[in-house]
Simulated assay, not measured.
Amino acid sequence: MAVKDFETSKEGIEIQFATNHIGHFLLTNLLMPKLEAASPGARIINVSSGGYVLSEVRFDDLNFEDGKSYIPWLGYAQSKTANILFTVGLAAMLKKRGIYSFSLHPGLIFGTNLGLHLDEESFKVLAEIGLERGFPTLVEDERPKSLSEGCATGLVAALDDSLEGKSGAYLSDCVIETPMEYARDSDNAEKLWLLSEELIGQKFSY
């Protein structure tokens, strides 16, 4: 989350996009035979973040000009947008197989290792970017949650029977929310799927 210095995976992919999306993409697809065996009713849950509002997926420049224009929060945000788009793509592809997918924002949660790179200056930058993107109270709007509260939306996504028939939904505070257009656009979801296959050098079709 908001890794301060530009890094890449050993494959040359910006580290937050590699960790938060590409790794999930590959693991999910490798697990597909087991998910199919557990269906109908298996669920794939992608933990995104409300921070996705800070950036679309930078399809033409994932690596920020090889780090020259790298901004930590934007790297994080594009990976979280990717989590939502991946969910949209999975929901469309797996609908007939009885496998469902949901993405979610767990909330602002301290006391984990996710925020190791964060300090007071990081939150100032976050507020500035939020203001530029049209979210002037982005930081203030987030009431910190306890670890138990932070688990709640994930548990709803995984277990709540009322979500049946709503595959592809994005949840926050335990209810469905409508993400911004670029994060739910089916064309963007397909574009991300193809890009992800290209980056790992393996194709998956269902």
Score class of each variant (00 low, 15 high):
residue 3 V to R: 12
residue 4 K to R: 15
residue 9 S to I: 10
residue 11 E to C: 02
residue 11 E to S: 14
residue 14 E to I: 10
residue 14 E to M: 05
residue 17 F to S: 13
residue 18 A to G: 12
residue 18 A to D: 12
residue 19 T to N: 11
residue 19 T to D: 08
residue 21 H to R: 08
residue 22 I to G: 05
residue 26 L to Q: 11
residue 26 L to D: 10
residue 27 L to N: 07
residue 28 T to Q: 06
residue 28 T to L: 06
residue 29 N to T: 04
residue 29 N to H: 15
residue 30 L to A: 11
residue 30 L to I: 13
residue 38 A to I: 06
residue 39 S to N: 07
residue 41 G to Y: 06
residue 42 A to K: 09
residue 42 A to V: 08
residue 46 N to V: 04
residue 48 S to I: 02
residue 49 S to I: 07
residue 50 G to C: 05
residue 51 G to D: 05
residue 53 V to A: 08
residue 54 L to G: 08
residue 54 L to Q: 06
residue 56 E to C: 01
residue 57 V to M: 07
residue 58 R to S: 05
residue 59 F to P: 03
residue 60 D to T: 06
residue 60 D to M: 03
residue 61 D to I: 01
residue 62 L to C: 07
residue 64 F to I: 11
residue 65 E to R: 12
residue 66 D to T: 01
residue 68 K to S: 08
residue 69 S to D: 04
residue 70 Y to I: 04
residue 73 W to G: 00
residue 73 W to D: 04
residue 75 G to T: 00
residue 76 Y to P: 04
residue 77 A to S: 12
residue 80 K to N: 02
residue 81 T to F: 01
residue 83 N to F: 00
residue 83 N to T: 02
residue 84 I to T: 03
residue 84 I to K: 01
residue 88 V to S: 00
residue 91 A to Y: 02
residue 92 A to V: 05
residue 92 A to L: 03
residue 92 A to M: 03
residue 93 M to V: 02
residue 94 L to R: 10
residue 98 G to Q: 07
residue 99 I to S: 10
residue 102 F to H: 05
residue 103 S to Q: 02
residue 106 P to I: 08
residue 107 G to N: 06
residue 108 L to I: 04
residue 108 L to V: 06
residue 111 G to M: 01
residue 112 T to E: 05
residue 113 N to F: 00
residue 118 L to H: 15
residue 119 D to S: 13
residue 121 E to H: 14
residue 122 S to M: 06
residue 122 S to D: 09
residue 124 K to C: 05
residue 126 L to N: 11
residue 127 A to I: 00
residue 128 E to F: 01
residue 130 G to F: 06
residue 135 F to Y: 15
residue 136 P to F: 09
residue 136 P to T: 11
residue 137 T to F: 13
residue 138 L to Q: 08
residue 140 E to F: 01
residue 143 R to M: 07
residue 144 P to W: 07
residue 147 L to Y: 00
residue 149 E to H: 04
residue 154 G to E: 03
residue 155 L to A: 15
residue 156 V to N: 01
residue 156 V to W: 05
residue 158 A to M: 09
residue 160 D to P: 02
residue 160 D to L: 06
residue 169 A to H: 02
residue 171 L to P: 07
residue 172 S to R: 12
residue 175 V to I: 14
residue 176 I to R: 13
residue 182 Y to M: 12
residue 182 Y to V: 10
residue 186 S to D: 07
residue 186 S to W: 00
residue 186 S to A: 14
residue 194 L to A: 14
residue 194 L to E: 15
residue 196 S to P: 05
residue 196 S to M: 05
residue 198 E to N: 15
residue 202 Q to G: 01
residue 204 F to T: 09
residue 205 S to A: 12
residue 205 S to V: 13
residue 206 Y to E: 06
